[in-house]
């Protein structure tokens, strides 16, 4: 079983190798780079964890609402959008749109990206529309996060 698979791989590599950009073997080159980066990140995390320990506030009290309640930073854009969108569209209330748009539609759109963008080029200069839309989406999320 394993032998058959390896043979198949061997054939594939022969076919694709001339098309590839210059390649270096996965081990040790790629693995070494990965290990170096992982050591740096692990060290960085250790320093962060020692200098800024995770916080623990007062115990939960369902009868006492604290004044600034904020979610994790990666959900702030949903909050921001909910606050920003105050317009009813026809029979749909503003709150429903404010919730649905950044969660359901946004993720739906993200999933569909490769099927919407049919331009086969990966060169940034020939993908002006995709790049512009990407920058707008990025700035939009940043704006609502803020």
């Amino acid at each position: 079983m394993a032998i058959a698979e390896n043979k198949k791989y061997g054939e594939e590599e022969k076919k694709t190798e001339p098309v590839r950009v210059r390649g270096l073997p996965f081990f040790p080159h790629f693995v070494l780079r990965e290990v170096v980066v992982m050591c740096i990140v692990a060290g960085f995390l250790l320093i962060l964890a020692s200098v800024y320990p995770a916080s623990l506030l007062k115990p939960a009290d369902p009868f006492d609402t604290p004044s600034p309640i904020y979610p994790e930073w990666y959900f702030l854009y949903v909050f921001g959008f909910l606050k920003f969108w105050i317009y009813d569209v026809g029979p749909i209330p503003a709150k429903i749109i404010g919730v649905t748009l950044p969660m359901v539609l946004w993720y739906g759109l993200l999933i569909l990206v490769p099927f919407i963008d049919r331009n086969p080029s990966t060169d940034i200069r020939t993908r002006k529309v995709a790049v512009t839309l990407g920058i707008i989406a990025l700035l939009g999320v940043l704006y609502f996060t803020y």
Partner: peptide
């Protein structure tokens, strides 16, 4: 047959600019 299993993984080329 460890050698036959590991060899294609170890030698699998990664593009230089990725590294």
């Amino acid at each position: 047959k460890l050698r036959e299993l590991l060899q294609p993984i170890i030698k699998h080329p990664a593009p230089e600019n990725v590294i």
